[in-house]
Amino acid sequence: MRLLRYAVLAAVCLLALAFPQLATWADQEFYISVASRVLIWGLFATSLNLLVGMGGMVSMGHAAFFGIGAYVVGITAVEAPQWSGALLVLPLAVLVTGALALVIGAISLRTRGVYFIMITLAFAQMLFYVFISLKGYGGDDGMQLLARSPLGSLKMADDTVFYYLVLALLALCLLGLARLRDSRFGRVLAGIKDNEARMESLGYATFRFKLTAFVIAGGMGGLAGALMANQNGYLSPNMLYWDQSGTALVMVILGGLGSLWGGLAGAAAFLLLEEVLAAFTPHWQIILGLVLLGVVFFAPRGLAGLFARKPR
């Protein structure tokens, strides 16, 4: 089992590294940008997995950070083009969405369960309507980007170059999360998910730990949004809409709640299913629903759970 795990892991890493070459060799360069989208969705779903899977905080408003991360790129390009370099604008997107998560989290984490779902959803929907009405930034038409955020002498317009940037950032985030999960903080977060009242009575100010996780997840979601805006050359209020949060949640459940690779596995499976099924029938979401039911009943730890290590 352990060997199989490493074999799968190595195969996935190799495939990810060699993908642009394989696609070029097969004369299917189009798929390089498809792969970038998979990785970006993977990053977004991974950030949500930190909340839902590791921390037990089911948020239906994670799109707020996805969308605002994108708008940081779009608004910077218009208002302060001199700052639109990737080395400035990507960290800026993380900072802004992290700060936003601090505010949203500080309010919504005072509630629990269904109320938490509703209040996070409400915040994201509020931002959606704000940006719909901001005609200066495109209103519901969104914003077109003239170019990807420049990074040194790299040719960012080249899909292969951009793919590797996304891959590197995703790898960094996964490494960070892997360390976090096994750290003191990660163990406390797992404890809060397991039994929050007990953690309180052991002396943990659980609110602070949850808020910290919420901020990290928000910043990571914002990074994903900033990358998605760059990938598409376009952004719109739709990135803030609740169905984006729902999609990420479906990916997390599909891939494996709380497992490190769950977000990425879920994003890959979801987008692949969408691609394949949509070719057969316009009602592909029905089949997706059946697959989701199957996962919940027969593989509750998701796709990644089939290979992942046993939970603690």
Partner: peptide, 21 residues
């Protein structure tokens, strides 16, 4: 780990994100 996490509460900060516990 149950007892470990209880001990952790009274021995140093738990806002440590990198080092494996």
């Amino acid at each position: 780990d149950n007892v470990g996490v209880a001990l952790q509460a009274v021995s140093g900060s738990s806002f440590a994100f990198w080092r494996p516990v």
